[in-house]
Design a protein around this nucleic acid. Structure first.
Length: 555
RNA sequence: GCCGGGGUAGCUCAGCAUGGCCAGAGCGUUCGACUCAUAAUCGAAAGGUCGCGGGCUCAAGUCCCGCCCCCGGCACCA
């Protein structure tokens, strides 16, 4: 189990780069961005310096073709999606210290210098490849852009890299056609650069085995890939939209997107370091590096990315952690934009509070590559019965009683009974319990601990009967301090609501500027006057969900 | 086909590495209590052949063998 107390330096968190050709959806949020944001918020509250960087992935054939169809320059096209994605992230309170782009000048120059170093270290070679070329569009066509009939099962209209009907990868697709214009592609030869991934098999194996911070089950199948023999990577693309390969005979060829996009983690951090007047390379190499990803890009992050860093003599160090999570399913079916089976960020934020999504997704997403199911009925039940009835209710009943019976002034503490001592003890320890789980990336379990804490408090409150008994003051004093504790430990998960709690407690400043360890201190003193109390959450009624299900199905 | 993960209460899952208190949690269900609180809360109960079959052991959900079933990955998809 990784423990944060071993990390004493700066932490660098990166989230996988969204491809700049369409909206991000709930699946991306659940697997990558929300876990990274929760983690970052927690580290920040713990008092360490943390940088969360991300960027839009701007290059590639799909973007080039889409921008042409929309009669925009690729540059304008990706700028739009860069801003749009950022807006979506912000609407979910997912914050970055920098949201850059792979097409930034800084990334271009770093990518080219890394290529040069790989080349001088002898890890790059050239080879002729024969590729389909569309004579009408005057483009080389990646596999995805050649459609035809599957030679295995005879299904028509299949991509040349995968038959969706029989699931096989066709050797050579029959009756090939250009996906863009429908004409028949011809074969054309082109000189490409290859990265010698195969040379790194032993070093990658060593790194995987030695790095105990990586998830064991993922390690197993990555090791299996290595044992089956790694294949060198073609890092060249014959298109005009990308980072130019810096050789005299490259003839306008550009890098393949997966060569340049992960380097953007580093170039973004360098930009940020510059802003903070720090030595970027030193900062990178002294920090704990976390790359949050979804399981679809395991290959690239567990093999390709570390191999390239090994290939430049670890000028920039390898990742310490690669938190990897599975995909989100909607009603047990895979999300698919082309089939309109997905939930966009807007779909959600137009209807519900941001924190409802964060709470729900965090509570159902484990630290593993298992897929999780998004279900509207479960969503409603979890929000109403766990977040609102348990946590919201405890906060509300505590604060309301102080407001109504004590003129909003926190009462004095008197004689402590064993139940009071137990409650105080729980306040002391909850921060460490939750923190340990967040540090080991078990965010769902951390949230369960918070719910158990809140449940305990409801039970404590119920037994002490502060609305009638003689020990009213002590109970309310402890309870209001427990509310403060809840605000802090919930802050990484539901930041907006935590801030509302903080405001109602009238503690000044922001909950996000507190110290995590202070969650264990009873810092609200008797006599403190709290603010105006309003319910934090609104329950989701059944009709809303039923209506929504009908709307979403018809989408 | 190969590789990986999994099959434990109605649902979602923990427990299995280092076999041993009556097999656990949350949600749901039923009954009772309370009324400060968003009909929220508190207490209690019901509910399980731990996929199937065999084996090792004083003892197996936990180890070994076989079988069945489910899910995911199979590499340039950006």
């Amino acid at each position: 189990m990784p423990e944060l107390n071993t990390i004493t330096k700066t932490v660098i968190v990166t989230s996988a780069l969204p491809y700049a050709n369409g909206q991000i959806h709930l699946g991306h949020i659940a697997s990558t961005y929300l876990p990274a944001d929760i983690y970052t918020r927690y580290i920040r509250l713990s008092g360490l310096t943390v940088y969360h960087v991300c960027a839009s992935d701007d290059f590639g054939t799909p973007i080039l073709i889409r921008s042409e169809k929309e009669k925009k320059t690729p540059s304008d096209y990706v700028s739009y999606w860069n801003r749009r994605d950022l807006k979506d992230f912000q609407s979910l309170a997912i914050n970055f210290d920098l949201f850059s782009r792979t097409s930034s000048p800084e990334n271009k120059s770093l990518v080219q210098s890394i290529f040069n170093k790989l080349q001088s270290n002898g890890y790059i070679y050239e080879k002729e490849v024969i590729q389909p070329f569309c004579p009408v569009d005057k483009k080389f066509l990646p596999d995805r852009f050649v459609v035809g009939t599957c030679p295995n099962c005879g299904a028509e209209g299949q991509y040349s890299d995968l038959c969706e009907n029989c699931g096989k990868v066709p050797e050579e697709i029959l009756d090939p056609k250009c996906w863009i214009c429908g004409s028949v592609p011809i074969k054309r030869s082109s000189n490409h650069y290859f990265f010698q991934l195969s040379k790194f098999s032993d070093k990658l194996r060593d790194w995987l085995i030695k790095n105990s911070n990586l998830q064991e089950d993922i390690k197993k199948y990555v090791l299996n890939w290595i044992n089956n023999g790694l294949v060198d990577w073609d890092i060249t693309r014959d298109i005009e939209w990308g980072i130019p390969i810096p050789t005299s005979d490259a003839n306008g060829k550009v890098f393949y997107g997966w060569f340049d996009n992960h380097i953007c983690y580093i170039s973004s951090l360098l930009i940020l370091a510059e802003e903070h007047k720090k030595d970027g390379k030193q900062l990178w190499n002294e920090s704990a590096i976390f790359h949050f990803i979804g399981k679809d890009i395991v290959y690239h992050h567990y093999l390709f990315l570390p191999a390239i860093r090994l290939g430049i003599d670890q000028e920039y160090k390898l990742p310490d952690y690669l938190p990897t999570r599975g995909h989100l399913l909607l009603k047990n079916k895979k999300l698919s934009k082309s089939r309109n089976w997905y939930i966009s960020i807007e779909d959600f934020t137009q209807r519900f509070e941001t924190d409802y999504l964060r709470f729900y997704l965090a509570s159902i997403t484990p630290y593993s590559q298992d897929d999780v199911n998004f279900d509207w009925d479960t969503f409603r039940e979890k929000i109403n019965n766990e977040l609102i009835a348990n946590v919201g209710n405890f906060i509300n009943r505590t604060l309301t009683l102080i407001q109504n019976n004590f003129a909003s002034s926190v009462p004095k503490i008197s004689k402590l009974e064993s139940y009071d001592n137990e409650a105080i003890d729980r306040i002391h320890t909850i921060g460490t319990e939750v923190g340990t789980k967040i540090e080991s990336n078990h965010l769902n379990r951390a949230l369960m601990d918070i719910l158990a804490f809140s449940s305990f408090l409801n039970s404590y409150f119920q037994h002490k009967k502060p609305w009638s008994s003689s020990s009213v003051d002590t109970t309310l004093y402890i309870s209001v301090n427990a509310v403060r504790t809840l605000a802090i430990v919930l802050a990484p998960f539901i930041p907006n609501s935590s801030e509302k709690i903080w405001y109602q407690l009238k503690l000044g400043d922001s909950v996000h500027k507190q110290e995590w360890s202070s969650s264990g201190v009873l810092r609200i003193a008797p006599g403190h006057v709290i603010g105006k109390i309003v319910p934090l959450f609104k329950k989701i009624d059944k009709e809303t969900i039923e209506k929504l299900q009908i709307e979403m199905t018809g989408k």
